[in-house]
């Protein structure tokens, strides 16, 4: 295994971590409209993710920075090529980020209403678009011989990528609903469990269609294996949710999200952005990578600091481990 292979694994790990973590806080963001019946319940939902969503989002920033450093060509072609979807994601993340902090800062119905919409759409839009983006990465895009994307915006909205978007959206909502069941108490918890059961079925259908399509068009033996693990995790999570084992249901819904993402990366490898115009134009782990010197330095930094991050981020979840109910919301 060469350094650029290792860094492909590292980038995949960062995105998998991002989808696992921000996946459920996107889901909770969507549920603020779908599950909460009044303002207090909405605040319960927001407060389940309030201390952690920001740290979850740093996984994306780290993944982006690591992609820039380890695979400059991939970063450059991808970000300039997927310009408008990324612009939408950015705007969504901006309004969503400030909405958590600002929504309670003034009285007034329209003030809250507007920030609630920001949280809802700011969660829904990226949850959908990340699926679209990663489906397109696996599917390949029109890259010319200078690795420039020539396909335009509408070419990114094909049937396969739209199913990918629906899959991530439903998976994240499911993941968020299971998280809500784990982190809340009382009626909210019961309704979260029920809703999880319903959304989970939809997510399972979308995921099975998406993963089978991925497997038949782009798959390998290995990606077939990870896709099956993803499917089993999702089914297991649904069963555990049904019998009220919230913690294990959440672990497995996270497992489903993670293995679905891993499947995409396994199917992609050794390409990082295939060209649909000419395979010779494809970006691969080899031709998109930085020098071994840069990768070597980055490896040391990652080996030392990533475990440290995992420890203190994990500790945060431990500190805020207790369930929250409407009785815990101050006036």
């Amino acid at each position: 295994m060469e350094l650029h292979d290792l860094w492909f694994v590292a980038i995949a790990t960062l995105f998998v971590g991002y989808f696992f973590l921000e996946g459920f806080d996107f889901g909770v963001g969507v549920l603020t409209q779908a599950l909460a019946r009044d303002d207090t319940e909405r605040r319960v939902l927001i407060n389940t993710i309030a201390p952690v969503w920001d740290g979850n989002e740093v996984w994306l920033i780290t993944a982006g920075g690591a992609m820039f450093a380890a695979f400059p060509e991939w970063y450059a072609s991808l970000f300039s090529g997927f310009y408008l979807p990324l612009l939408l994601i950015l705007v969504a993340l901006i309004v969503r980020g400030v909405a958590f902090e600002y929504r309670g800062k003034r009285e007034g119905r329209s003030w809250r209403r507007n920030w609630d919409l920001a949280i809802f759409f700011g969660s829904l839009v990226p949850a959908f678009l990340w699926g679209v983006a990663f489906a397109n990465i696996v599917r390949g895009v029109a890259l010319d011989d200078r690795h420039l994307y020539t396909g335009g915006f509408w070419a990114l909205l094909n049937v396969y990528s739209l199913i990918g978007g629906v899959t991530t959206l439903l998976l994240f909502i499911y993941h968020g609903a299971v998280f809500t069941a784990l982190k809340t108490s009382g009626g909210l918890r019961d309704r979260a469990e029920r809703l999880a059961g319903q959304v989970g079925l939809g997510a399972a259908v979308a995921a099975v269609v998406f993963l089978i399509w991925t497997q038949t068009r782009h798959g390998s033996a290995a990606s077939g294996g990870t896709a099956i693990v993803a499917a089993l995790a999702l089914v297991g999570s649904l069963v555990l949710n049904r019998i009220g084992r919230d913690g294990w249901a959440f672990a497995l819904s996270g497992g489903a999200v993670a293995f679905a993402a891993i499947t995409l990366f396994v199917a992609l490898y050794p390409d990082v952005l295939p060209s649909t115009v000419d395979p010779a134009n494809s970006l691969t782990v080899a031709n998109a990578a930085a020098t071994d010197k840069t990768l070597g330095i980055m490896t040391w930094v990652a080996v030392i600091f990533l475990p440290l991050v995992l420890i203190y981020q994990g500790w945060t979840y431990w500190v805020f481990r207790r369930r929250i109910g409407v009785q815990n919301i101050p006036a």
Partner: peptide, 9 residues
Amino acid sequence: GAPLAIEAL
């Protein structure tokens, strides 16, 4: 890219 990635991490 490296300082950016390290900044995040």
